[in-house]
Computed example of a mutant assay.
Amino acid sequence: MRNGRMPSALLVLASVLTVTTVALDNGLMRTPPMGWLAWERFRCDIDCEQDPKNCISEKLFIDMADRLSEDGWRELGYVYVNIDDCWSSMERDKQGRLQPDPKRFPGGIQKLARYMHDRGLKLGIYGDMGTHTCGGYPGTPLDKIKIDAQTFADWEVDMLKFDGCYSNSIEQAQGYPLMSKALNATGRPIGYSCSWPAYQGGLPPKVNYTQLGEICNLWRNYGDIQDSWDSVMSIVDWFFENQDVLTPAAGPGRWNDPDMVIIII
């Protein structure tokens, strides 16, 4: 599941109302995280030769970091610059670690993270609880969770969005909690966004929101936003119809993610 678009007027839903709940004990995301994520606009455009301004590359994320830091968004709380799918090489390195595509991210992810940090911003990255990402890149199966969590920490990443393509419900039930433990074990504070409930229909009894709040800072409940008003309204309607379940699940450090921030210019 994916999300993102440059914000200007934030659509606030009842699902992110603050209530007293037990949250993941990493001290992060006490308020709903805000920032920018590439997917909704840029998708999996990797053709940097023909489309250099819009392809998934370090240049795109540097440009967006400049916009957040120079155009006033950072002061409004928009501090995350999040990479989505299609950032990696098609192969892990010789040590079994994920690696960025060398042509599109020649400086590496750690250098990009430091670019963000120098500007008072945070870097988010995308992974997938499965054999492959939704875009067909290397995923994180159960036996790779620890090494991938440590790799993200070594790169000084600040947030992980963990998707669920190419995995089943049994693997997800094991993998999402394991990644939470693995991230915490690195010693680096990394916000954890889980797509798990979106793959389980978003509602109890299949989704246990008490458990989610103990392992995740943020979670996707519903499908991806598309570039249409009908898509926006379908998400609004779903959250409205299920607010009695969703609102009590949210609070400091644990948030529903409706996959939308709306711009009106």
Rank of each mutant, 00 (worst) to 15 (best):
S234F: 08
L17G: 14
L142W: 08
M34T: 12
V19G: 15
F105H: 04
L13I: 13
D101A: 14
P141Y: 13
I170P: 10
T151A: 11
K111T: 10
G135L: 11
A182P: 02
V12K: 02
I147M: 11
S89T: 14
W155K: 14
T133K: 00
P204V: 07
Y199C: 07
L142N: 05
D47S: 12
E241N: 07
K181S: 13
G135C: 11
Q99M: 05
Y126C: 01
L123Q: 13
G253V: 03
I170M: 15
Q200C: 06
P33F: 09
S234Q: 05
V261H: 15
Y176Q: 13
V12Q: 09
L212W: 04
E58I: 01
N26G: 01
N242Q: 02
Y126G: 05
S195H: 08
P32E: 09
W87M: 10
C44Q: 11
P205R: 06
R254L: 04
G124H: 00
R67T: 09
E156V: 01
N3H: 08
D118Q: 14
N184R: 11
Q172H: 13
L76F: 14
L13T: 15
P205M: 05
F239D: 07
A249V: 03
P189E: 04
N168G: 11
N221Y: 04
F42A: 09
V207C: 02
G251Y: 01
D244Y: 04
Q95C: 01
K111R: 13
F240N: 06
V79L: 10
Q110I: 03
L24G: 03
T140H: 01
K144H: 08
D237E: 10
I145Q: 02
D224K: 06
R43K: 15
Q172D: 08
R67V: 09
I46Q: 10
A182E: 01
L123R: 15
A173M: 08
G251P: 03
E241W: 05
H132W: 06
Y78V: 09
G72W: 14
P248Q: 06
R2F: 08
K146F: 10
F152Q: 09
N54W: 00
A113Q: 03
R188K: 12
E70M: 03
C134S: 13
V207S: 04
V16Q: 10
G223I: 12
G124W: 06
G213Q: 00
L123W: 13
E91P: 14
T18H: 12
K144G: 05
Y209Q: 01
R30C: 11
C55H: 15
I56G: 04
Q95I: 05
R92M: 05
P100K: 06
S8V: 13
R67N: 10
Q110E: 13
N26H: 09
I190P: 00
G77Y: 11
A198W: 09
G202V: 06
V245H: 07
